[in-house]
Amino acid sequence: MSKCILMVIVISLFSGCKITPFSAQPQTFASYYLWIKSLSTEALKAELSIINQQTENSAFTDTKRVKLALLFALPRMPQHNPYTAKTHLNQIDKSYFSADDLAFVELLSEQLNQQIIALNRNVLTNQKLERITDKNVQINEQVKKLTTQINQLKSIERDIQPQELNQ
Score class of each variant (00 low, 15 high):
145 K>C: 08
108 L>Q: 09
31 S>C: 04
57 N>A: 15
41 T>L: 09
132 I>W: 09
123 V>R: 05
134 D>P: 06
125 T>G: 01
38 S>A: 05
2 S>W: 01
55 T>V: 15
119 L>F: 05
132 I>L: 13
137 V>M: 14
135 K>H: 13
51 I>D: 07
161 Q>R: 15
49 S>W: 12
128 K>W: 07
54 Q>T: 12
38 S>C: 01
115 Q>G: 05
34 L>T: 04
74 L>K: 01
156 I>L: 13
135 K>N: 12
3 K>A: 13
65 R>F: 03
2 S>K: 06
117 I>M: 04
134 D>L: 13
39 L>S: 00
87 T>G: 07
66 V>W: 00
157 E>L: 15
140 N>L: 14
159 D>G: 09
81 N>M: 01
67 K>E: 04
9 I>L: 10
4 C>D: 12
74 L>R: 01
41 T>Q: 15
4 C>M: 15
121 R>P: 02
40 S>T: 09
152 Q>Y: 08
38 S>P: 00
150 I>M: 11
147 T>I: 05
139 I>E: 12
2 S>V: 10
165 L>S: 14
43 A>Y: 03
35 W>C: 04
18 K>M: 03
9 I>P: 00
139 I>N: 07
118 A>G: 05
28 T>P: 05
123 V>K: 09
47 E>K: 14
48 L>D: 04
152 Q>S: 14
18 K>H: 13
161 Q>L: 10
131 R>L: 15
164 E>D: 09
157 E>F: 12
158 R>S: 15
29 F>Y: 07
53 Q>I: 04
108 L>M: 08
65 R>L: 07
148 T>F: 11
74 L>V: 00
96 Y>W: 04
60 F>T: 09
17 C>I: 08
107 L>F: 05
61 T>Q: 03
64 K>S: 08
32 Y>I: 03
90 N>P: 00
85 A>Y: 03
109 S>Y: 08
114 Q>N: 14
96 Y>F: 03
58 S>A: 14
142 Q>Y: 06
158 R>F: 07
30 A>I: 02
48 L>Y: 00
146 L>Q: 13
4 C>A: 13
63 T>V: 15
20 T>C: 07
